[in-house]
Nucleic acid binder design. Structure first.
Length: 891
RNA sequence: GGGCGGAUAGCUCAGUUGGGAGAGCGCAGCCCUUACAAGGCUGAGGUCACAGGUUCGAUCCCUGUUCCGCCUACCA
């Protein structure tokens, strides 16, 4: 057998396996399979993106699920893909054009789109390679892209059907406009930021107050929009102003006459209780204008500059205009005062520019009718969020949902399938490009210039990727998908919309479980961002510590409902863990004899006759079984961190720290050939099962080690997930007893500074027969692991002169010290132990003295406490004898 | 304004039918013991944020407070 390198070198191992798995088609879903189905679609990353920690976490968790389910015998589909990311991609390509001194307008739509496709072919989707590097076991043969022909057909189909049902409409409404990206944005695409600003108090004169110089003062954070004011509103129940409702105001600078209206939406407490109304540039005001049938006056153009309605301010950028307008108002005495004020401003999530609410003609989805069944699906538990608490967030948004603006004034995306007629003004909406107007048959039709929100196509992802609107085998087999794993930040953007669309067009939920993973932050708890410069690059981490170690770190941190503070130290720790595993394998392989290898395939070996097992064998097999149960349970309940913790403890602190040490003499043949064979067998079998348990988390190293154990060409992922059933609770307990004696002797050795090589004698006093039995059966192990020469076990008696003692549950361990014992050190040891013990003792005694406790607590609990009291009292007695003994020696 | 989450060892975090507080890193001491120094052994370190309540018993359940995050909202 090959000798492994002394340290594990992931860089040498990982790329080979990534390729191998894909070449062999191990990730392919099978439409002819009769196995139970497990399916997921990947949240499609942006085509412009590159792998960040969030992707890495989410993909790792999905990969754990996929690999686990595959090994458990499921027909697994994990469908990968990417998103065309309309605005982001267009920005990227426009930036490239700018470097050539070009603009998209000069290039023209068609040639611009050619450039985007070319860019896509050359440098788009880099992230897919990075996902492969991470080990993501997606079915790469089914890779999808939102702009693919098939998916585009799905988009059109959906648009046409919603339009025909009146759920998609076009109209003039106020929307969020990004003056930089030159497009409308949905509410969700606007990010709110708190900034310092001012609250301006503007004085508006009343028309019939000319003689009396009557005025009304309004408060605003955006004085420049006053040019577009078409009313002033007050609350009708506001006594200060109620009598003025219906009067006319002269708008300063503009000299337009505007009405003073009453509206319940006005907050009497805020500012002066009077608010200016600018319907064309404020959502609130727009609503109010509709209620009161007010005029809408736009005062800005699409670049965010003042337009002709702004009179002398025309051409000024909106922020310059603010200063200019305030200045002008001030000169004429219309500014009463200016307060400092924290305000929330909306910014474009793509470029950060302050968005401008603007009246505009756009396409919308009437979402309410779609939202109702989507709410119900979650209420009725047909879809379950994990953690459950996210359902509140979902409900909150869905119940207050507003119409979705889906048209974007960009070129890269699915063009809106609507044609307008120059003759009759009819709008033709069709799945295939029409040549004549549906209404009048005229050929003079032209297509809408706009494209759809990228999220529109993403909403169809779970079924469009499976072939819809065609009724494919994939669709039939894999829809609804089993799980969706994603971040909370796109619950509204994506999850909710998929649920609505899935229910609408497939008549069924798109997935059963929605697992919401944590958000990754840096070590200080800051959100990672390029501008902060605190981004941890997953690729660098994989390079530096190995993909498996990086994956394991993410999984270990993935506790539900808590953010992840990622730190490099932790990754290093798991790098060490992978090295530990590597060396475990190295040890095993080093000690195999030729015949062990010839006799059978280590990768498939069965456990031998259980009657041949000794205590350590039975103990480790029991521990393995418990670990396997915990791993499965953790994955199935999305408590991935628990699985990871359990495996870590088992491999390092049970298998390596104890079992390997226990069987070393066996493996080396010191206890006979038969025993050697059994030990080898158990050790290799446990190693093999451990590798399998670990494989979903650490696919590379496990496959690598496994490859040395197998005779035929098989991947570890094809060998099934271990479900061991051997369990020996008695030996498990006995072993614990033996281990605690070993620990006790080691403790004494350390505290007494006994040289490492020196052997010591040991006397164990234990009243309980079974405890003595356990110690006696473990004699050889205690001698080995604690460096004991002679071991005596007695029911009762005295510790030998000049010996030091340690007390563990039910056992008192004495170690005679050659030369003389440092009495002071020993006394101090005993006294500290006594002090600690007395604390525990008084707790227990207090409990047992409490009648209510005795009467009301469950019997088992009371019995347990009583047993504990006895143990503690016994311990106490022994420690006190020890202290007494020291006193007598001192004389 | 509404909602959600967090506060446990120096740091990062686990801890559910409520019943003797855990891990990793870091720290201290000893050890290059033939799988592993990316290692081994041993150890120190915690009024479980604060105040009440329920209970025989609370880190855990309930109420309130403080601090820190996040999401959401039409106080201009």
């Amino acid at each position: 057998m090959k000798t492994l390198d002394k340290t594990y070198n992931p860089a040498k191992v990982e790329p080979r396996w990534s390729e191998h798995w894909i070449e062999k088609g191990l990730f392919r879903a099978d439409t002819d399979s009769r196995k139970p189905v497990f399916s997921m679609v990947i949240p499609p990353p942006n085509i412009t993106g590159s792998l960040h920690c969030g992707h890495a976490l989410n993909s790792t968790l999905q990969d754990v699920l996929a690999r686990y389910k595959r090994m458990k015998g499921f027909n697994v589909l994990w469908l990968p893909g990417i998103d065309h990311a309309g605005i982001a991609t267009q920005n990227v390509v426009e930036r490239m054009l700018a470097e050539e001194g070009l603009t998209r307008e000069r290039l023209g739509r068609e040639r611009f789109l050619e450039r985007v496709w070319k860019w896509k072919e050359e440098s788009g989707g880099r992230i897919l390679e990075q996902l492969k590097r991470l080990g993501a076991s997606c079915d790469w043969t089914r890779l999808r892209f939102t702009m693919d022909e098939g998916l585009s057909r799905a988009v059109r189909e959906v648009f046409v059907r919603l339009f025909s049902e009146g759920l998609i409409y076009r109209g003039d409404y106020i929307i969020n406009w990004c003056p930089r990206c030159h497009t409308a944005l949905s509410d969700l695409e606007v990010q709110h930021e708190e900034r310092d600003g001012f609250l301006y108090y503007l004085v508006y004169p009343l028309k019939d107050g000319k003689k009396t110089r009557k005025t009304i003062t309004v408060a605003t954070t955006r004085p420049e929009t006053m040019l577009g004011d078409t009313a002033v509103a007050v609350n009708p129940s506001d006594k200060r102003y109620a009598s003025l409702i219906g009067t006319t105001i002269i708008l300063p600078l503009v000299n337009r006459e505007i009405p003073l209206i009453g509206d319940n939406g006005v907050d009497m407490e805020f500012g002066t209780g009077a608010v200016k109304v600018t319907p064309a540039h404020d959502f609130n005001d727009f609503e109010m204008a509709r209620r009161h049938d007010l005029e809408c006056v736009r005062v800005m153009d699409l670049d965010g500059r003042m337009n002709e309605n702004a009179g002398r301010f025309k051409g000024l950028d909106r922020f310059r205009a603010r200063e200019a307008v305030v200045e002008a108002l001030r000169e004429e005495g219309f500014v009463k005062k200016v307060d400092n004020y924290r305000l929330l401003i909306g910014t474009c999530y793509r470029c950060g520019t302050t968005v401008e609410p603007t009246l505009s003609k756009q396409w919308f989805v009437d979402v309410k009718p779609l939202a109702e069944p989507a709410i119900k699906a979650v209420e009725e538990g047909r879809i379950v969020f994990i953690p459950r608490s996210w359902e509140n967030t979902y409900f909150e948004w869905m119940r207050n949902i507003r119409d979705w603006c889906i048209s974007r004034q960009i070129w890269w995306g699915h063009r809106i399938p609507a044609w307008y007629c120059k003759r009759c003004e009819h709008t033709t909406v069709a799945t295939t490009d029409p040549s004549v107007c549906e209404g009048c048959g005229s050929e003079e039709i032209y297509q809408d210039e706009d494209v759809l929100d990228t999220w529109f196509s993403s909403a169809l992802w779970p079924f469009s990727t499976l072939g819809w609107p065609q009724r494919t085998k994939d669709l039939e087999m894999f829809y609804p998908t089993t799980v969706l794993s994603t971040g909370f930040d796109i619950i509204f953007f994506w999850v909710a919309r998929m649920i609505m669309m899935g229910l609408k067009f497939m008549g069924d939920v798109p997935f059963r479980d929605v697992y919401i993973h944590a958000l990754i932050r840096d070590a200080e708890g800051q959100k990672m961002s390029k501008s902060r410069g605190n981004v941890i690059d997953p690729l660098v981490m994989m390079e530096r510590y190995g993909t498996d170690a990086f994956r394991y770190t993410l999984v270990s941190f993935a506790a539900q409902g808590r953010d992840i503070k990622l730190s490099e130290d932790r990754i290093e720790g798991y790098r060490n863990f992978s090295n530990k595993l590597w060396n475990l394998a190295r040890f095993v392989f080093m000690n195999l004899e030729e015949e062990d290898l010839e006799e059978e395939d280590l990768a498939e070996g069965r456990y031998p006759d259980t009657s041949l097992y000794n205590i350590p064998d039975r103990w480790i097999l029991t521990r393995l079984k418990r670990c396997a149960d915990e791993v499965s349970k953790g994955i199935e309940t999305y408590n991935f961190d628990e699985s990871a913790r359990s495996l870590y403890r088992f491999i390092w602190h049970e298998l390596c720290d104890w079992y390997v040490e226990l069987v070393k003499p066996d493996i080396k043949g010191e206890r006979g050939e038969e025993r050697r064979k059994v030990a080898v067998h158990v050790l290799t079998s446990v190693l093999r099962d451990t590798l399998k348990l670990l494989h979903p988390f650490m696919p590379f190293i496990t496959e690598e080690i496994f490859s040395y154990m197998k005779k035929r060409d098989v991947s570890i992922m094809e060998t099934g997930f271990p479900e061991p059933d051997l369990i020996f609770p008695e030996e498990e307990a006995e072993m614990e007893r033996i281990m605690s004696v070993v620990r006790a002797v080691r403790n004494i050795r350390t505290e007494m500074n006994i040289p490492h090589r020196a052997r010591v004698d040991c006397l164990c006093l234990a009243r309980d027969d079974s405890v003595r039995g356990a110690i006696l059966t473990g004699e050889a192990y205690i001698k080995d692991l604690a460096g004991v020469e002679n071991l005596r076990v007695e029911a009762s008696g005295e510790g030998p002169r000049g010996s030091v003692s340690a007390i563990t549950d039910g056992v008192e361990v004495f170690v005679p010290i050659s030369g003389h014992v440092d009495l002071d050190v020993e006394e101090k040891r005993l006294k500290t132990a006594l002090k600690k013990l007395l604390g525990e003792l008084s707790q227990v005694q207090r409990k047992l003295a409490n009648e209510d406790f005795l009467n009301r607590a469950p019997r088992e609990v009371v019995a347990k406490e009583k047993r504990r009291l006895e143990e503690l009292l016994e311990k106490k007695g022994r420690i006190e004898t020890g202290i007494e003994r020291i006193r007598t020696v001192r004389g």
